[in-house]
Amino acid sequence: MPMEPIMSGGGNSMRMLSIDDSSVVRKIIRMAAEVLEFELVEAEDGFEGLAKLDELGGQVDIILLDWNMPGMNGLEVLKRLKQNEKTKRIPVMMVTTESQKENIVEAVKAGAAHYMIKPFTMEELTKKIMECLGRGTI
């Protein structure tokens, strides 16, 4: 559900990368970025996400990553991110329907900072993003 912007001043200067093959999920994340007044970069799959990160020189503050995507799944993308010196410190939040415990454990072992299971509300999403950035609750 839509929310009004909740960060004052618009001076967060945060850049968020969303890697998700669903146009609807990317639109939901776009809405979260507007609420948080973050700059958003979008990618439709893992290959595009890694390419955009490379173009940006790894200058991204947080990555929201889908698990089930064509070509390269989110876990593989996560592993590649954590093996790269330029990207290994970027907090990654998995955004997925994969709610089984072993999936969560696997993602955390691979370096995921947070894990967001669909369905979620906009409030839950923005709160998790801020937690992932170490900014606590909003």
Binding site: S22, V24, P119
Partner: peptide
């Protein structure tokens, strides 16, 4: 395409939720 994608996501969430439970 947005509507197809949204409906696909809805099915995905339902199945994923039940599988997790």
């Amino acid at each position: 395409e947005d509507l197809r994608d949204g409906l696909s996501e809805l099915v995905n969430m339902v199945a994923g939720t039940v599988r997790g439970r």
